[in-house]
Amino acid sequence: MSSVVNSITDFYCAYKEWVSANPQKSADFETTAKWVSYFIAGRINNSSIVSELVYTLSNLLVLFNDRIIFNARRVGGHVPGEKLKIFLTVLEYTEVFIEISAKKLWGDKGKWALIVIVQLVKCISKLLLFFHYKEKITTAPSVPPLHRTEFVQKQVSELSRSIASTSAFSLKSGRVIRTVSSAPPLNARSWSPPLLPPNNNVEQFRQATSNIPMPTSVKVAEVMYLMKPLCYLGALFAYKDKPWRPWLLSLGLDLMSLKLNHSVRPSSMSPEEQKELSRRSIALVLYLLRSPYYEKVSAKPLHAVLNAMSNNLPLVGHICRPLIHYLPEWQRTYFYMWST
């Protein structure tokens, strides 16, 4: 038994070393796993569950490998709320699989019970991040995928900056002086002053804005956005025979939250805030594919456009016809409003 444990430990250590040393190769493997989930859809029995399982595992693999790469090149200690963010990200990646599995095992009642539990846990966790850990804005997913090439280059530049800052210093006059301990051998000296790398403006911006108090209106806007899934679920149960009311409630909360955020947040928003607010604005387009708007308004025009493209454009039919076939299933599975 101990030999098996040692073998697993050795394999895990070797895998971590390979991933941290080859971030791009691991990304190619992850992309292949995601394409496998698309290929499986509709080709085997219970394909929706199997394909969603493969897609979920591929997302979890991306998160796992990202953490390996991040921890291998981490500078500084842990970020406040980091473990809670990782837990939330795992839950966000697995919630669709949990939903369709619950429906398969326990029917609609089991599905709705799991949906309410998952969204309640997500809402409480995000409110905890916002109020206790002082998150400026909550993102989806809570731990965004790592841009590995940029991250590795950034860490290399920070390392060189750290080395340079210990080998030279700048006087008040602006003149750069090399320390005695870092001077090269006499025969290798160029007698030119060393160059200090430029400061990281992004980090300076974060440090300068980290202690700025958040306006009350922004807090209200963020709480509205975080409470939206539970408000929608409550309205869905209260107005079972009037599906437009929950749809309008969810859309109204999204619009009010965005309006408050854009009008009250400082003009010098951080890149993370700008990116997240842009994502939320673009996500409003998804209301065209959400029930009941999809069934009542957008389904027929969308199918007509896809049919026209598949019949009149060469090679496009190979993409549009499967899309027409799977669109109703994808609409029921992914385009819901209780997920942020």
Rank of each mutant, 00 (worst) to 15 (best):
M1C: 02
S2L: 05
S7K: 13
C13R: 12
C13W: 07
Y15T: 07
E17I: 04
W18I: 06
W18A: 08
W18P: 01
V19L: 02
N22T: 02
N22K: 08
K25A: 02
S26F: 10
T31D: 09
A41W: 04
A41Y: 14
L53T: 07
L53N: 03
L57R: 14
N59E: 13
N59H: 15
V62N: 12
L63S: 02
D66I: 03
R67F: 00
I68C: 00
I69W: 00
F70R: 05
N71K: 10
R74Q: 02
R74K: 15
G76W: 11
G76C: 01
G76P: 15
G81Q: 12
E82N: 02
K83Q: 01
F87H: 03
L88E: 00
V90R: 03
V90E: 02
E92W: 05
E95K: 10
E95S: 13
I100M: 08
K104L: 08
K109V: 03
W112E: 01
A113P: 05
L114Q: 08
V118Y: 00
V118L: 02
L120E: 07
I124N: 03
K126L: 10
L127F: 15
F131H: 08
H132M: 13
E135R: 04
K136V: 06
T138Y: 08
T138V: 15
T139S: 05
P144I: 11
P145I: 01
L146Q: 06
V152W: 01
Q153H: 15
K154V: 07
E158K: 12
E158Y: 12
R161C: 06
A164Q: 07
S165H: 14
A168K: 00
S173R: 13
R178F: 08
S181Q: 05
S181R: 12
L186N: 03
R189E: 01
S190G: 01
S190E: 06
P193H: 04
P194Q: 04
P198E: 03
N199Q: 10
N199W: 06
N199E: 09
N201V: 10
F205R: 14
N211G: 08
E222C: 08
P229G: 00
P229M: 05
L233M: 06
G234S: 12
F237K: 15
K242R: 14
P243E: 06
R245L: 15
L248M: 13
L249M: 11
L249I: 08
D254A: 05
D254G: 05
M256D: 02
S257C: 10
L260M: 12
S263F: 03
V264Y: 11
V264T: 13
R265A: 05
P271N: 11
E276V: 06
L277Y: 13
S278G: 10
R279G: 06
I282V: 07
I282L: 03
L286D: 04
L288V: 03
L288F: 15
L289S: 09
L289A: 14
R290F: 09
R290K: 14
R290T: 14
P292K: 06
K296C: 14
P301L: 11
H303W: 09
A304D: 09
A308H: 15
M309R: 11
S310K: 10
S310R: 04
N311T: 10
P314H: 07
V316Y: 13
I319D: 00
I319T: 08
R321Y: 12
Q331P: 02
R332V: 01
M337F: 05
W338Y: 04
W338K: 00
S339I: 04
S339Y: 10
